[in-house]
């Protein structure tokens, strides 16, 4: 367990760092896909198998493919040096490190509430389905409308005009 956790975390952070540091946009996109897989691995360790599947389906299957399409459609010629940082590189890195240090300090200094006891023999998928379609029915329907808006938007804005 411990080794697997460190392996996935290391892969995740290494891929993520590679994505933001790489100067080649295609490399960035591929490394990003790797990091999405690593996140799915962490979900399995946390016994959220259904979410891990959703992660792979949506992030790797849909979002990553969309991003790769975006990369291909917006580049002409060489992809070398296609993903350069702007002039805030050093300031950005410094503030990210400081922000991270502050967050870690707060996480270590916080005492968390006592864990609740799990429901014995509960099926996670059934629980998720029940929560989504009863308590969160309003939010669930609204998310459907939101996806409809995104589709309409992609068609209106993305469509090539004659």
């Amino acid at each position: 367990m411990i080794i697997i956790f460190y392996l996935f975390s290391f892969l995740l952070l290494a891929f993520a760092l590679g994505t933001v540091l790489s100067k080649n946009l295609v490399h960035s996109a591929l490394l990003m896909i790797g990091s999405f897989f690593a996140v799915a691995g962490l979900y399995i360790l946390l016994q959220a198998e259904f979410l891990a599947m959703v992660q792979i389906l949506v992030y790797v299957g849909a979002i990553a493919v969309l991003v790769v399409f975006g990369v291909m459609l917006t580049r002409k010629g060489s992809v070398k040096d296609s993903n350069l940082p702007n002039r805030y590189k050093k300031v950005g890195a410094l503030s990210a490190v400081i922000f991270f240090a502050l967050l870690v300090r707060s996480i270590i200094n916080t005492s968390f509430p006592a864990p609740s006891s799990p429901v014995v023999g509960a099926n996670t998928i059934i629980q998720i389905a029940q929560t989504l379609l009863t308590q969160y029915a309003v939010a669930f329907e609204a998310l459907g409308v939101l996806l409809l808006v995104a589709i309409i938007g992609a068609i209106i804005i993305g469509k090539e005009t004659k």
Binding site: V54, L66, P113, I128, L143, A150, I151, I157
Partner: peptide, 25 residues
């Protein structure tokens, strides 16, 4: 901390949906 309800996983699924819409738009 809160294994009695699947609230966190449900929230995460909503966020996955939002992320997909955001990338598309």
């Amino acid at each position: 901390l809160h294994p009695n309800l699947v609230l966190g996983q449900v929230f995460a699924m909503f966020i996955v949906g939002i992320a997909a819409a955001e990338v598309a738009l």
